[in-house]
Amino acid sequence: LQLFIKTLTGKTFTVEMEPSDTIENLKAKIQDKEGIPPDQQRLIFAGKQLEDGRTLSDYNIQKESTLHLVL
């Protein structure tokens, strides 16, 4: 599923993930694309901070959802 990642600077980029992927996987993918170390990434969806060990489906993140990346 394609997700939109929006940064505080207003930049938006996309990543391609599976619902079974963990937040950790997502942070690694963001590191590949943007060079931001996972330990500096905080991801927010629907007002909640996402925890590394959980999956996208745990948070009911669907295709074309927008996640906010806070550094």
Rank of each mutant, 00 (worst) to 15 (best):
L1S: 05
L1G: 06
L1A: 05
Q2G: 06
Q2H: 11
L3K: 00
L3A: 02
L3S: 00
L3R: 00
F4N: 14
F4P: 02
F4D: 04
F4G: 03
I5C: 01
I5F: 03
I5P: 00
I5D: 00
K6Q: 13
K6S: 10
T7Q: 12
T7I: 13
T9Q: 14
T9D: 14
T9F: 08
T9R: 08
G10D: 06
G10T: 03
G10I: 03
G10H: 07
K11Q: 08
K11V: 10
K11Y: 11
K11C: 05
T12W: 09
T12N: 10
T12Y: 08
F13A: 02
T14M: 14
T14Q: 13
T14D: 06
T14G: 06
T14K: 11
T14L: 15
T14P: 08
T14W: 09
V15I: 14
V15T: 03
V15S: 01
V15G: 00
V15H: 01
E16D: 11
E16L: 15
E16Y: 15
E16I: 14
E16F: 15
M17V: 10
M17C: 04
E18F: 14
E18P: 05
E18H: 13
E18D: 13
E18W: 13
E18Q: 14
P19S: 12
P19I: 10
P19N: 15
P19K: 08
S20C: 05
D21K: 05
D21N: 10
T22G: 04
T22V: 06
T22S: 09
T22F: 11
T22W: 06
E24D: 10
E24P: 03
N25K: 11
N25C: 05
N25S: 13
L26D: 00
L26H: 00
K27L: 02
A28Y: 11
A28D: 09
A28C: 04
A28S: 11
A28I: 12
A28P: 01
A28K: 12
K29M: 14
I30K: 00
I30V: 06
I30C: 02
I30S: 00
Q31Y: 12
Q31L: 10
Q31T: 12
Q31E: 10
Q31F: 13
Q31C: 04
D32P: 02
D32I: 08
D32R: 13
K33S: 11
K33L: 15
K33D: 04
K33V: 12
K33N: 06
G35V: 02
G35A: 06
G35C: 03
I36E: 02
I36S: 05
I36P: 05
P37F: 06
P37S: 11
P38Y: 15
P38D: 04
P38F: 14
D39L: 12
D39F: 15
Q40W: 08
Q40K: 12
Q40C: 04
R42W: 10
R42L: 13
R42G: 05
L43G: 00
L43C: 01
L43M: 03
L43H: 01
L43Q: 00
I44M: 12
F45R: 03
A46G: 14
A46N: 15
A46T: 05
G47I: 02
G47K: 04
G47S: 06
G47M: 04
G47Q: 05
K48G: 07
K48W: 07
K48L: 14
Q49P: 11
Q49D: 15
Q49S: 08
L50T: 03
L50H: 00
L50W: 02
L50N: 00
E51V: 07
E51R: 06
E51M: 12
E51W: 04
E51D: 12
D52Q: 05
D52K: 05
G53A: 10
G53M: 08
G53C: 04
G53L: 08
R54M: 14
R54Q: 10
T55N: 06
T55V: 13
S57N: 15
S57G: 11
S57P: 03
D58M: 05
D58R: 02
D58Y: 12
D58I: 03
Y59V: 03
Y59G: 01
Y59P: 00
Y59S: 03
N60F: 08
N60A: 10
I61F: 06
I61M: 07
Q62M: 11
Q62R: 09
Q62A: 10
Q62K: 14
Q62H: 14
Q62G: 13
Q62S: 15
Q62V: 15
K63P: 14
K63F: 10
K63W: 09
E64A: 09
E64G: 14
E64H: 15
E64Y: 15
S65V: 07
S65P: 04
T66E: 14
T66G: 03
T66N: 05
T66L: 11
T66A: 04
L67Q: 02
L67F: 04
L67W: 02
L67H: 02
H68P: 02
H68Q: 09
H68M: 09
H68A: 06
H68T: 10
H68F: 07
L69D: 00
L69M: 06
V70D: 07
V70K: 06
V70W: 11
V70H: 11
L71A: 08
L71S: 09
